[in-house]
Simulated scan of single mutants.
Amino acid sequence: MPTLKHDPVQHRYEVEVVEGFWAHLDYTVQGEVWSITHTFVPDELRGQGCGKVLMENVLTDIQAQGKKIRPICSYAVVYLQRHPQWQHLLVSCD
């Protein structure tokens, strides 16, 4: 599993998906709910599963912290629709 870096002050997770190439995920916080607002994978690595690596690592950490998520960015929405094993982390969008 790649090393996950979390900067709670900047509200950012980073994963070195390939040596020298980092993907990141930004979020905002409202109480116990983290809204995933942006994901980034370097252009030269798109379509190679790096976004999946990023999401799996971040969601594993969020689950360990007992937090809930609200996907805002389109990649996070699509990822969560395709991977039902993470549905228990979602909050309603009411």
Rank of each mutant, 00 (worst) to 15 (best):
D26K: 09
G31K: 14
H83V: 04
I72W: 08
K52E: 07
G51T: 02
D61V: 06
V41G: 02
Q81C: 06
Q81K: 13
K5P: 00
G31C: 13
A76N: 02
F21A: 07
L54G: 00
M1R: 10
P2C: 07
Q65F: 08
L4F: 02
Y75L: 08
L4I: 04
E56D: 14
V91L: 03
P2T: 06
L59I: 08
H6V: 10
L4K: 04
H38W: 07
P84H: 12
Q10S: 10
C50F: 06
K68L: 12
D61M: 01
S35I: 07
L25C: 11
E16L: 08
H6N: 03
D94A: 13
N57Y: 04
G66R: 10
W22T: 05
V18K: 09
E44A: 08
Q10I: 12
F21D: 13
S35R: 00
K52P: 01
E16G: 15
I36L: 15
P71K: 06
F40C: 09
Q65Y: 10
Y27R: 02
R12H: 06
T28Q: 14
T60S: 11
T37C: 09
Q85F: 06
D94W: 07
Q81T: 05
R82Y: 09
L4Q: 01
K67C: 09
V91M: 04
T39C: 05
H88N: 13
E56H: 05
V91P: 01
K67I: 00
H38K: 12
G49S: 11
E14L: 06
C50M: 12
D26V: 04
D94H: 13
W22S: 09
C50E: 01
I36V: 15
E14Q: 12
Y79N: 01
G20R: 05
S92E: 15
C50A: 13
Q85H: 13
R70T: 02
V17F: 03
T39S: 08
A64L: 11
K68Y: 11
Q87E: 12
I72F: 11
D7K: 04
S92W: 06
K5T: 03
P8N: 14
V9A: 09
A23S: 15
Y79C: 01
S74Q: 15
K52Q: 12
S35C: 10
V77D: 02
N57A: 14
Q10A: 15
V41A: 03
G20K: 13
C93V: 12
Q30F: 03
V18D: 04
P42V: 06
R82A: 14
E19I: 07
S92R: 15
N57S: 12
L89S: 03
V41K: 00
V17Q: 00
S35Y: 00
E19F: 06
Q87W: 06
E19L: 07
V58Q: 01
I69V: 14
H88W: 06
F40W: 10
T37A: 07
R46W: 11
R46G: 03
E56F: 02
Y27F: 08
D61C: 05
E16F: 03
H24T: 05
P42T: 10
G49P: 05
D26I: 04
N57G: 14
P2V: 07
Q87A: 11
P84S: 15
Y27H: 02
Q81V: 03
V33L: 02
K68H: 10
W86K: 13
T37Q: 12
K68C: 05
C73F: 05
D43A: 11
E44V: 11
I62P: 01
P42Y: 08
